[in-house]
């Protein structure tokens, strides 16, 4: 088996162009998948030595997050919107967060991925590069289904951009799972909020684990926009949450419980983002 650790994006892209490659970032998802399948990859392209792939930087368009930035770094960051660091903190255990990367979480495209709903709520933009060139894709259109994305086999996620607009305002994330520590989301939700004099100027919300892909909560957003954000409004908005999601029953939770959790979690994140006393 071949294991390459390119130092530059160009070198990585050129190796990918020759085919037979598996892109390796932190490896926390890949290791589990490979163990289960028992298959040995032909070639690992470990992208974590490409220096521009790690860390965060403020640029003209907004905040750039390198795909190999670890989940632990995101969790500890005060520069990114709060919902994203909260989402990162919710992932796995310290051991997982130290190894796992944000690019891996996104490209793995698990419906319960805990940075996915924040990315969607923040309208993050993903830059994808392949031997054929580069393109930018909006977070909401990037995910096609469980473990399915618009990425081609030889295509790399090279940059994650949070637009300047979303660096203002406030945001929050919450998830719930079957146990308290190290657990997969039964439901998670992220909300980003811009309040002007107590009135919702703009709001974006997204849910995870309630559909094959993370979902924007458009009806809820529409209801909330322009309203004064008090306990009553928050309570009323929960009726719209139900319409925005389409959960199923599976091993982790029933459909009914997911509806209930979505409401309860949304109630909590909205209050949190609005700076209202919460639970």
């Amino acid at each position: 088996m071949e294991y390459v650790q390119p130092d530059t994006l160009e070198a990585a892209v050129s190796r990918l162009g020759r085919g037979g490659c598996t892109i390796l970032s932190g490896g926390t998802d890949l290791a589990v998948v490979n163990r289960a399948s028992g298959l040995k990859p032909e070639c690992f392209v470990d992208i974590c030595r490409i220096s521009q792939f790690s860390g965060m930087e403020l640029g003209e368009e907004g905040l750039h997050i390198g795909p190999c930035t670890t989940i632990a770094e995101l969790a500890a960051s005060a520069e990114i919107p709060h919902c994203l660091s909260q989402g990162a903190s919710a992932i796995g255990s310290p051991q997982i967060r130290n190894a796992a990367t944000v690019g891996g979480n996104i490209c793995n495209a698990s419906p319960c991925g805990d940075t996915l709903s924040p990315m969607v709520a923040l309208s993050a933009s993903f830059v994808l590069v392949s031997p054929r060139g580069s393109r930018a894709v909006d977070a909401e259109t990037f995910f096609l289904g469980p473990k399915k994305t618009v990425l081609a086999d030889d295509e790399l996620l090279t940059d994650i951009i949070i637009g300047r607009e979303f660096l203002k305002g406030t945001s929050a994330f919450k998830m719930l799972g079957k146990r308290k520590g190290q657990v997969i989301s039964q439901v998670n939700a992220a909300v980003w909020l811009l309040l002007e004099d107590g009135v919702v100027a703009k709001v974006q919300a997204a849910f995870g684990s309630v559909a094959p892909v993370p979902l924007r909560a458009r009806q809820t957003e529409a209801f909330l926009t322009g309203k004064e954000l008090d306990a009553g409004t928050i309570h009323e908005s929960l009726a719209y949450v139900k319409q925005d999601i389409r959960p199923i029953s599976d091993i982790r939770a029933s459909e009914a419980y997911r509806y209930r959790l979505a409401e309860s979690i949304f109630h909590d994140v909205l209050k949190q983002a609005a700076g209202l006393a919460c639970c």
Partner: peptide, 27 residues
């Protein structure tokens, strides 16, 4: 467990804990 859940395989890598069952040698 071999899949990152139990932590029995914990090591400290560059000052941080990781699950050695999920870590590839190349790293």
């Amino acid at each position: 467990c071999g899949e990152g859940e139990c932590g029995a395989c914990t090591i400290i890598l560059n000052g941080k804990t990781v699950n050695s069952c999920l870590l590839y040698a190349g790293k």
